[in-house]
Amino acid sequence: MDLRIFTEPQQGASYDTLLRVAKATEDLGYDAFFRSDHYLKMGDVDGLPGPTDAWTTLAGLARETSRIRLGTLMTAATFRLPGVLAIQVAQVDQMSGGRVELGLGAGWYEDEHTAYGIPFPAAKFGRLEEQLAIVTGLWRTALGETFDFEGRYYQLKDCPALPKPTQERIPVLVGGMGPRRTPELAARFADEFNLPFVSVDDSAKQIQRVREAVQEQGRAADSMVYSNALVACVGRDEAEVARRAAAIGREPAELRENGLAGTPAEVVEKIGRYAETGSSRFYLQILDLDDLDHLALIADQVMPQLG
């Protein structure tokens, strides 16, 4: 079972802060460091020192780390043209020696588009479908061949489909709770399906939908990795749980209900309940990026119990 660290830098983090967290992630034995792809803070925080770009960040971390996987939950399809995104991700994969994964979503946060002058189209899902087809198609195109695409939103003609990533296949993540189109898109294009901040019961229902969609595409249901992203707030005792909850402006009871919170034993038990739904990978959303002892505690007292 994989444990991955997931950060939300738009809430306020410099590159240097992210680098410290990524190095701790690697040193402590976690599987991967992921980050959100947003340009505007959410909620009642100042967001200082300001946003960092996801793929610029990952390019830097690619050269500063050596083992952990690196990726996004989720890059917004509204932020980049698909041909440009394919180049960016392939280059960072080369820079990392083949450790990159791409989470790609439709884009949903209208305020950040307005704030930075990014178009926010109405038909986002159709654009996401075409982006997935183009990005994966470009990477699959054999050397010396060209790639053409004639879609409603994007057209490519005689594209050399370069550069190629180091990995033969960069893992692609799709996620969400849409009951029909989301599972279908995942089944067609994704290697991993991610469930963002949902309950055990809702995870079980959506994983079953995705498994059925995967099989309808002629794939084995277990060819997809199923994962959950959940806020983490772990403490050695109740006082430490309360302190960490207060540091991120949350209540321990609410975090226990909606995330992975409590003592290590409590968190291991809840991860076990998610695992029963078919989930085998967990993205621990870490909101206090200065609290590296939090990562150390989870690595020391949660990770060894998961097998």
Score class of each variant (00 low, 15 high):
residue 272 G to L: 08
residue 2 D to F: 04
residue 168 E to S: 04
residue 152 R to P: 02
residue 267 V to H: 12
residue 170 I to H: 12
residue 11 Q to Y: 15
residue 301 Q to M: 11
residue 225 V to S: 09
residue 54 A to Q: 08
residue 157 K to F: 00
residue 301 Q to P: 13
residue 118 I to D: 10
residue 71 G to E: 09
residue 166 T to W: 07
residue 128 L to V: 10
residue 30 Y to N: 04
residue 291 D to E: 09
residue 303 M to L: 15
residue 56 T to P: 05
residue 128 L to E: 10
residue 271 I to F: 11
residue 51 P to G: 01
residue 97 G to C: 07
residue 158 D to P: 08
residue 272 G to F: 02
residue 155 Q to C: 06
residue 29 G to S: 04
residue 202 D to A: 15
residue 291 D to L: 10
residue 109 Y to W: 14
residue 27 D to S: 03
residue 8 E to F: 11
residue 129 E to M: 02
residue 124 K to D: 00
residue 49 P to L: 10
residue 236 R to Y: 07
residue 85 L to Q: 05
residue 262 G to T: 09
residue 176 G to C: 06
residue 211 R to K: 15
residue 153 Y to A: 08
residue 212 E to F: 04
residue 10 Q to S: 09
residue 215 Q to P: 00
residue 182 T to G: 01
residue 236 R to C: 08
residue 282 F to A: 06
residue 103 G to A: 05
residue 286 I to Q: 12
residue 8 E to D: 14
residue 91 Q to E: 10
residue 130 E to S: 05
residue 5 I to A: 09
residue 101 E to N: 06
residue 18 L to A: 13
residue 69 R to H: 06
residue 254 E to Y: 13
residue 16 D to G: 05
residue 289 L to H: 13
residue 243 R to I: 06
residue 61 L to V: 12
residue 147 F to E: 01
residue 128 L to G: 06
residue 118 I to S: 05
residue 270 K to A: 06
residue 84 V to D: 10
residue 40 L to E: 07
residue 297 L to K: 10
residue 71 G to Q: 11
residue 266 E to Y: 11
